[in-house]
């Protein structure tokens, strides 16, 4: 249900984690938005989010939505990458979902998120994987 146009529009955020920083108050928005959610200003500078962070909260989805059956059980988390910048991502490469903990260090890796069936487009983005050297 994601059209080619919509998926293409989102590439800077999905593929490159491009965010925006308010030039007035410094709040970082991912994804970017038209006005700063903190001070209402409308001028921003771009930045790319770092690809390291930690798990703030998570769940393991056992009853999947359409299109995610093959990925079940599906761990999903809110990950914080820099002070206050949080995003929702799946957690990948986990042998046992029980090993996921709040505070777990993770790295964001480029992965396949979903696809529009066998014949439709493939949607790529980032997932959090355990950062084992941290």
């Amino acid at each position: 249900m994601i059209s080619p146009g919509r998926s293409w529009r989102e590439f800077p955020q999905r593929y490159r984690l491009e965010a925006e920083k308010c030039t007035v108050c410094g709040k970082i928005h991912y994804p970017p938005r038209v006005t700063c959610s903190k001070c209402g200003a409308r001028t921003f500078e771009s930045l790319v989010l770092p690809r390291e962070g930690k798990v703030v909260t998570f769940t393991v989805v056992r009853v999947p939505p359409a299109g995610f059956t093959e990925q079940t059980p599906l761990p999903v988390a809110i990950v914080e990458v820099m002070d206050g910048v949080r995003l929702m991502v799946q957690i990948g490469d986990v042998a046992d979902p029980d090993e996921i903990e709040i505070g777990m260090p993770v790295r964001l890796e480029f992965r396949r998120i979903s696809s529009d069936g066998e014949a439709g487009l493939i949607f790529y983005g980032h997932k959090a994987v355990p950062r084992l050297d941290a």
Partner: peptide, 20 residues
């Protein structure tokens, strides 16, 4: 776009709140 895209469901969202 920024939650549903990742395969989260409503039970999943509330589960995250529960865990917190």
């Amino acid at each position: 776009e920024w939650e549903g895209f990742h395969g989260i469901t409503f039970p999943g969202l509330y589960a995250m709140l529960a865990r917190a």
